[in-house]
Design a binder for these strands. Structure first.
Lengths: 278, 278
DNA sequence: CATCGATAATGCTCTATAGCACTATTCGGA
DNA sequence: TCCGAATAGTGCTATAGAGCATTATCGATG
């Protein structure tokens, strides 16, 4: 249910104070420190105004001040408060609407969208466990560089004999083995990954934080198989047990295949959730 | 490979001629027939300029004049040709980019995106087989109405003891059994399905064509399990064989859960393809 | 031949403003 | 009391520009 109309909170505590008279100033790019730009990053070319506005709104949503169904400040109000033009405020809101964070109703206002369940969301193992409220850790079975995985190299868009980083881990949850995961990546492009402390640190995290890779999506093939002797021992299950096999080719934002991973999951311990559209 | 830079086709045959001097004119809403508005719909409140521009571009893509990789006219050019402001041309292009039809490259231009493969597409069994170039048929194992499937009724948003249509089929491809699929639906809402000739006709097709249901998406749970005696016999595989289990709750466009289906797929005969996003 | 710099075209952010379309509230009259 | 019109606030489309950031090409220089 929606909070009463015409009762938008007109006081905006959480403002992002921004520069005024931007247009005049913009020719002088070493901008005078007019007003404190709160979240100012040290990096050059400060963050766009519309993104700052988005951040401000996001903060208020995450902070619980704006709950689902609550009205978000209107375009005109955002423009006034953040001292930007209507179009800029509008840009901020429509992008957030596109992302599903916020819902726009013509003539009525913009409202915080109900918490949408994330479908088809690419998560690393630790992230998955965290989202289930579990703590995860891994046991590294093997790690090193291989050169003879022609097929996998091809999938990664590399020459057949490329040097590939390879990491094989048993994934644990609550001290029980749940899955065996093997991943591959270009050892030349990401040499640092080979020796990284991957018992505790997530591969996704390393790639995104240390290697400056932005992961975008993964194409996955899912089927069922059964455990051979080696896997049975590693996962402490009977030989021949059913396994869910997920093979994923993970792409970066530049549509570069970055990681190939194969996971074998004990049946009963892992369910993949997916939404498909007509 | 991309057509040479700075060689955008500067002659735009396919223009959507629009009104000029819109701003001045807009107060006078019974607009003088200044220039012929080609695609003008008879409906009141004519179509927005940016959508007309999109249509013009789409036509050129569909018509094959613009192939994947080819440059689309730039913002400035569209603005000039269609006699709109830069922001409007921009609006048209960025929305198309969002939809994936077109790809924008800062500093370089806007290009027709490669034909994107449909991922996470919800298909019925016969559709899946058709897309693989195979012909499919089914053997009905059981069909009728049940009233004691409380859990499934709940998933479909029905009272626990609702009458449910139930259909159990063995899915065949090339005369070999591939999967066992059981589906459930509200027998009160779709009574005609119970006696339908489902050996040959697809359930999806019946729903969409006969029952006027528009299917929208399905939420799926995927895991691995193994075959008990009955299933082993039906699928002609050894007992204990691995199976890929897909349980799907299929929703209509009105977000009404319409069908619940569970499929058990022989390992090695079926791979689910999915894309997940970060 | 290679490389570096200028150049030009592109997309991106943003201003300041106008009018339209839509929706919810409020207030006056039957 | 109920209903309809007025009203005010909202999002949507659009204008006509400015300057910035990024990219590809071409020509000059080594």
């Amino acid at each position: 249910m929606v909070i009463g109309r015409r009762k938008h909170p007109t006081a905006h505590e959480c403002r992002v104070v921004r520069r005024c008279g931007k247009q005049l100033e913009s020719a002088v790019r070493f901008r005078a420190p007019d007003v404190k730009t709160v979240g100012a990053m040290p990096s050059r070319s400060e963050e766009p105004a519309y993104k700052q506005i988005q951040k401000a709104i996001r903060r208020r949503i995450d902070g619980g001040q704006l709950k689902p169904g609550h009205p978000v400040p209107s375009e005109r109000e955002l423009a006034r408060v953040h001292k930007v033009s209507l179009m800029t405020a509008r840009h901020a809101l429509s992008e957030m609407a596109r992302e599903g964070l916020v819902e726009r109703r013509h003539g009525a206002g913009t409202f915080v969208a109900p918490p949408r369940v994330q479908f088809n969301k690419l998560l690393g193992y630790s992230e998955q466990m965290a989202s289930l409220g579990l703590t995860a850790h891994s046991r590294v079975i093997a790690s090193g560089v291989v050169t003879r995985e022609h097929e996998i190299a091809a999938r990664l868009g590399l020459a057949p004999t490329s040097r590939l980083g390879r990491l094989e881990r048993v994934r644990m949850a609550a001290d029980e083995p749940v899955a065996l995961e093997t991943c591959y990546w270009s050892a030349d492009e990401y040499p640092r990954l080979v020796d990284a402390p991957l018992e505790r640190v997530s591969l996704f995290g390393l790639l995104e934080r240390e290697c400056g890779v932005e992961l975008a999506y993964s194409d996955e093939e899912i089927d069922a198989t059964d455990a051979d002797l080696r896997i049975a021992e590693l996962l402490q299950i009977p030989r021949g047990s059913s396994l869910l096999r997920i093979r994923q080719l993970i792409f970066s934002t530049k549509s570069r295949a970055t990681v190939y991973a194969m996971g074998l999951y004990r049946s009963g311990r892992h369910t993949l959730r997916v939404r498909r559209f007509r």
